[in-house]
Simulated assay, not measured.
Amino acid sequence: MGFREASKFTRIAFGLAVGGFLTDIIGFPSPYWIVGPFSSQGLFQECALYGCFSLPMDLMPGWEKAVMAMEVLGFLACLGCFVLMVLYAHVKNDQTILQTMAIGLAFAAAGLILLGVIIYGAKLSGVTFGWSFGMTIVSGLFLIGVGALNIVDKFSSR
């Protein structure tokens, strides 16, 4: 029971889980969701020539709080999926409950992350989106791949 004994699908899904976790942990908290000539803005702070600052929560519109909540919950689900994939791929290849829980968390994380991105993009259409916005989208797509490959692996081994 180890990574070498894991199926091909599990190993690829593990690689996608690593990619999804890394792109999410870099993308969602960074202040480059929107970029302009002299400023940039993220979910948690805004930066300009004179420095970065955070807006108070009571001044934020409700949709922005919802996006923040979805992205944080999506990150936590992504973290849980990553931990379960490490356990399943490296330690316990015979424990299908770990794989089943990783599937659920991968799809939950992808749904939350992509829903937050969709709301943010719809509310702020017409602006220039930055690299961290794109990385967050890629993270959601990686997590869809993790869930899909785990489903294929789960039903191909029978």
Rank of each mutant, 00 (worst) to 15 (best):
G19T: 02
G20N: 05
L22N: 07
D24I: 12
I26D: 08
F28R: 02
F28A: 09
F28K: 02
S30T: 12
S30Q: 11
S30A: 14
S30E: 09
P31N: 08
Y32I: 07
W33L: 02
I34G: 03
I34Y: 00
I34W: 01
V35R: 02
P37R: 13
S39R: 11
S40K: 08
Q41N: 12
G42D: 00
Q45Y: 10
Q45F: 10
Q45A: 11
C47W: 03
L49Y: 10
G51C: 04
C52E: 04
F53P: 04
F53E: 14
S54G: 08
S54C: 01
M57P: 08
M57S: 15
D58T: 13
D58I: 13
L59F: 12
P61F: 07
P61R: 06
W63Q: 05
W63R: 03
E64H: 15
A66I: 09
A66S: 11
M70S: 10
E71Q: 14
V72E: 07
G74W: 01
F75G: 02
L76Y: 05
A77P: 03
C78P: 04
C78F: 13
L79Q: 00
G80R: 01
F82T: 01
M85H: 02
V86C: 11
H90P: 00
V91D: 11
V91A: 12
V91G: 07
K92H: 13
K92P: 08
K92S: 13
K92D: 15
K92E: 14
D94I: 03
Q95F: 14
Q99W: 02
Q99C: 08
T100H: 13
A102V: 06
I103A: 09
I103C: 06
L105Q: 02
A106H: 05
A106V: 06
F107Q: 06
F107S: 09
A109R: 01
A110V: 09
A110L: 06
A110H: 03
I113W: 01
V117K: 09
I118W: 07
I119R: 04
Y120V: 08
Y120I: 05
Y120D: 09
Y120S: 08
G121R: 08
G121M: 05
G126C: 04
G130Y: 01
G130F: 03
G130I: 02
